[in-house]
């Protein structure tokens, strides 16, 4: 078990290192001089370009630049935002809460709905309700969340004009106002996840229900509910946990679009803004952070997987 965890940990470090190199190289791979492009044509005098190049450390050798950047990053210093002059880490810290709230609420709602829905679909296999739910879930996977989000806003504005469903109020300032504005983005973010996760549960349950131990349990006279929720579900959860890890990554990415549509001041908006402003230190830091979160979540899922399924430890 320890050995397996260590291997996974080593893999995680390797991926994180690779991503950090790519992120770092980004500033060097864009065509033209980054400093010139950041300044734009209007006021890119040679002196200003030189000052900015020095500020960004672009005048040093590549290896040294990477060493300095990663060294600072490991101590929590991800550089300074070009336009506001504030530390990048502060800018990100101010936004990460909004993204975390919408992502985690979305994921929690998705899990809460997907597990019973998946079980239901599996037990009612080939019935009309199974087909109906499968059609809904295919629709859920296919509908892009930005479209769904926009339709939810239009629907609400037609049915409940004046309802405050877009924008953001901090939870600490107005809890009800905060949750009210979270309803639609969470639905838009959760629905595709519900669809994907319930299909995973359904497939895993169908497989589990054909296993010998299920037949044995039924033969012993165990109630059907107990067969499904205790015996079959526990085994069906193994692929589900993996899927949740991947979905969380997608939710994190999907929240970029959701934040645009619902005008939420999250990390996604910050990054999109940084891209249009060519604020490279901020873009690099945000990509690095997002990747690290994604890699760490996957590592934790792997560990959890090892804990749930003894067969994976070998």
């Amino acid at each position: 078990m320890t050995r397996a965890v260590l291997i996974r940990f080593g893999e995680m470090l390797f991926v994180a290192f690779g991503v950090s190199v790519l992120t770092f190289l980004m500033i060097h791979l864009i065509p033209g001089d980054a400093a010139q492009i950041m300044l734009g044509a209007a006021d890119a005098t040679p002196e200003k370009i030189a000052v900015l190049r020095a500020k960004l450390g672009l005048d040093r050798p590549l290896i040294m630049q990477y060493g300095l950047w990663i060294g600072h990053a490991l101590t929590g210093d991800l550089g300074t935002s070009i336009w506001t002059g504030r530390p990048v880490i502060e800018e990100i810290a101010g936004r990460v809460g909004v993204t975390a709230e919408v992502t985690l609420l979305g994921l929690a709602s998705a899990i809460t709905i997907a597990i019973p829905a998946g079980c239901l679909m599996a037990t009612m296999r080939s019935s009309v309700s199974d087909y109906a739910m499968r059609i809904v879930s295919i629709a859920g996977v296919t509908i892009p969340s930005f479209w769904l989000g926009t339709m939810l806003i239009f629907g609400t504005s037609a049915l409940l004009p004046g309802a405050q469903v877009v924008g953001y109020v901090p939870f600490g300032q107005d809890a009800w106002g905060n949750l009210q504005r979270m309803i639609l983005p969470v639905i838009a973010l959760a629905l595709p996840a519900v669809a994907a996760l319930s299909r995973v549960i359904r497939a895993a349950m169908l497989e589990a229900l054909t296993q010998d131990y299920v037949r044995t349990a039924r033969a012993k006279g165990v109630s059907e509910a107990r067969v499904i929720f205790t015996h079959a579900l526990r085994n069906a959860l193994i692929p589900f946990v993996t899927a949740v890890g991947i979905i969380l990554g997608y939710q994190f990415g999907g929240s970029v679009v959701i934040e645009q549509v619902f005008a939420l001041p999250g990390l996604g908006r910050l990054v999109v803004g940084a891209i249009t402003e060519r604020n490279y230190p901020l873009i690099q830091a945000a990509i690095l952070l997002a990747t690290v979160v994604f890699v760490v979540v996957n590592f934790l899922v792997d560990v959890l997987y090892l804990a749930i399924d003894p067969r994976a430890r070998g």
């Binding site: 926009t150 609400t156 504005s157 004009p161 004046g162 549509v261």
Partner: peptide
């Protein structure tokens, strides 16, 4: 001044009165 990046959201917002 609400900062609303999505044109469709601005449109729905003015239709609903937000």
């Amino acid at each position: 001044f609400h900062i609303v990046p999505d044109a469709a959201t601005r449109q729905a917002g003015v239709m609903g009165g937000t």
